[in-house]
Design a binder for these strands. Structure first.
Lengths: 205, 205
DNA sequence: GGTTATTTATACTATACAGTGTAATTTAAC
DNA sequence: GTTAAATTACACTGTATAGTATAAATAACC
């Protein structure tokens, strides 16, 4: 954001401090979770005074929500995959899966994924937002239907096939990586190949 | 446990209160998580005085660990599946999956699963215990090898096949149920059939 | 019914922490 | 360099809560 003149008053650019706060807060929150993170600790790690945090965010919860919002926004910027007649199904499925893995390949994003997963699990209110996690299914279902029209796939229910694919990706890769702190990603290539092969064994033509 | 005589002193049976405490604590912990649960609240919900809790458990954390221990013990009592030449693969795979679903079919167990998943995610120390969650794979790998010898299955790597199966079950059913508070279990039958079909499409003979 | 382990009520300590008030200081825009 | 917004240091309030102390009440076992 650029500095603006409002009401004849100078406004300085505060985005740098804001960013420092967000980064520090991410470090602290992902280390130990929301409840056991103190604003004093966040201030210390951010290299910013506690008062400044409260100048930017009215409360600990709003700070957390800002982090969540940024994270979800970042995730939604992942490019949607369109069905392509030119690329093989394998290649396209791999791209779908890799978009899913984007969230857990980087340590910081993985930490946030862990944090949010943990919070969403125990918090009904937040949990509703998680439903949007299943929105990618919609795009994938369209992809499946396109592949079917293109006589490359065969299935009764696209919803069921979508669940199977994402279930494999999440169950074999995503959650596994969250629990092992990325350790399990060593085998990700093998597993992803196997997931795709399995999916195509079932639905391929 | 039966009352015992130790050091010539009478000991009364305290297991009833202990049980009340554990049940109350489970209610409170699963409602809001470890950190935001207070011992006063647990005492109130348990119908027991706070001092009594501390007579049974030296700290909040030890109370929590007692709950965890009970839960994991209960889970380990699930009967292991042996390969059978008489039952169809479908039937046997279904049993494996249903053993996995045992943990999330009941609301209380599901609440505990959510709680522990949430805690394990954010707590490295606890996380190690989670590895034992992958121990079931060992029995399943043996099962896979038996099925292979019996010329019913074909695969390169039993480890990979096992990951695929459990990945599907966990990704499609377990985690889904945790996030939707069991709502997603409505479709569990369809999904389980599809999982088994998919698995056998890939590895069946 | 007496003995005694267990439980309870109540009050308490100590600490951690979210959030605020304020005056001094720094910093960027002009 | 002046000005005002932004930041800082620091002291502070209020509240929540883990864990303790203790004396009285309860209940099980003989």
């Amino acid at each position: 954001m650029m500095p603006e003149i409002v009401n004849n008053r100078k406004k300085r650019d505060t985005s740098r401090k804001r960013q420092m706060i967000l980064e520090g807060a991410i470090k602290v929150f992902t280390e130990k979770g929301f409840d056991t993170s103190s604003m004093d600790k966040i201030a210390e790690v951010s290299g910013v005074s506690k008062r400044t945090i409260y100048n930017h965010f009215p409360s600990k919860e709003s700070l957390f929500q800002a982090i969540v919002a940024d994270f979800l926004k970042q995730r939604d910027e992942i490019k949607p995959i369109q069905y392509s007649k030119d690329l093989s199904l394998q290649e396209q499925l791999r791209e779908f899966a890799q978009a899913e893995l984007y969230l857990i390949n980087d340590p910081v994003r993985r930490g946030l994924s862990k944090l949010l997963t943990s919070v969403f699990l125990m918090n009904i209110d937040f949990g509703k937002d998680t439903r949007s996690q299943f929105e990618p299914h919609r795009a994938f279902i369209q992809w499946l239907n396109s592949a079917k029209e293109d006589k490359k796939l065969s299935f009764q229910s696209p919803e069921l096939a979508a669940r199977i694919f994402y279930g494999m990706v999440e169950g074999c890769l995503t959650y596994s990586a969250l629990f092992t702190d990325g350790e399990s990603l060593k085998y990700a290539d093998n597993l992803l190949n196997e997931i795709i092969s399995t999916f195509l064994s079932r639905y391929g033509l």
